[in-house]
Computed example of a mutant assay.
Amino acid sequence: MNTFTKSLILSISAALISVSASAAPQSHPSEQHHQVQHSTQSNQHNQHGQTQKKSVHPSHDWKAGQKVPAQYRGQGYKVDHSKYRKLSKPGHQQQWIKVNGDYVLTSTLTHTIIRIIAG
C-alpha cells in the first residue's frame, strides 16, 4: 500500500472515532452521583428536568408551632371565618388561611401555625 492510501484510511478512521466519541454523553461518575442525590432530595423536577409543583397538605405536612412558608402568607389565602362553621373566630393578630383544602390558623405577627383543621 502506498503512503497516500494509508494516510487516507488513517484520516477516515480518526474522523469516525471522533464523531462517535462526541455523540456519546459526556458525564463523569461523580456528576451522575450528584444527579442521583439531587433527585432523591427534591421532588421539584421530573426525569425530563421539568419543574413540578409539590402538593402541600398542611394537615399532613405542617405542625403547630412551625412557620407558614412565605408563599402562603398573601391575601389570596386568607379566609373569612364567618363563612365556615368549623372555623372559630381568630384572636387578636391571628387569621385563617386555606391551603389545598386545609384551614390553618396563623399568627399575623410571627407567621407561626396555631391550629390546623383538615378540609
Rank of each mutant, 00 (worst) to 15 (best):
V19D: 02
S11H: 02
I116T: 06
P58Y: 07
I114Q: 03
N43D: 10
V104N: 01
A14W: 11
Q47C: 08
G101S: 11
S107C: 01
S39I: 11
D102I: 04
Q75F: 12
A118S: 08
V99S: 01
P90A: 07
K78H: 14
Q44K: 15
S13F: 08
T108E: 07
I114N: 12
K89S: 01
Q94Y: 09
K98D: 14
S18G: 09
Q35A: 13
S20N: 14
I116E: 01
L16E: 09
P58V: 06
W62A: 08
G74H: 03
N43V: 08
P69F: 02
S55C: 06
S30C: 09
S18M: 09
Q26D: 12
A24T: 09
G76L: 03
I114S: 06
V79N: 03
P58K: 01
A118F: 08
N100H: 10
Q44I: 11
H60M: 10
L87A: 08
H81K: 04
Q94N: 11
G119V: 10
H81C: 02
Q94G: 07
I113W: 00
Q37E: 15
A118N: 12
P69E: 02
K53W: 05
F4W: 10
A70F: 05
Q37Y: 10
I117R: 03
G65E: 07
H92V: 09
L16Q: 04
S88H: 11
I12H: 04
Y72W: 15
K67E: 12
G49N: 06
L105H: 01
P25D: 12
Q32W: 08
G74Q: 02
T106G: 03
L109C: 05
P29G: 15
N43M: 09
I117E: 10
P58N: 02
S13R: 05
T51H: 08
K83W: 04
K98C: 11
L10V: 11
Q26T: 08
N46E: 06
S42V: 07
V79C: 02
Q44W: 10
K54Y: 04
A64N: 13
Q47S: 14
Q93G: 05
T110F: 04
Y77H: 04
S55Y: 06
S13M: 14
K53D: 14
A14N: 10
I97M: 04
T112M: 06
S27L: 13
N43S: 10
H33V: 11
Y103I: 00
G91P: 07
K89Y: 00
Q37G: 13
P58F: 04
F4G: 13
V19Q: 03
K67G: 07
A14F: 11
S27R: 05
H38A: 15
N43F: 08
Q71V: 03
D61M: 00
R115L: 13
P69C: 00
T110L: 07
A21V: 11
T110Q: 14
Q37W: 13
Q41T: 14
L109I: 12
H57T: 12
A118C: 05
A23S: 13
T112R: 13
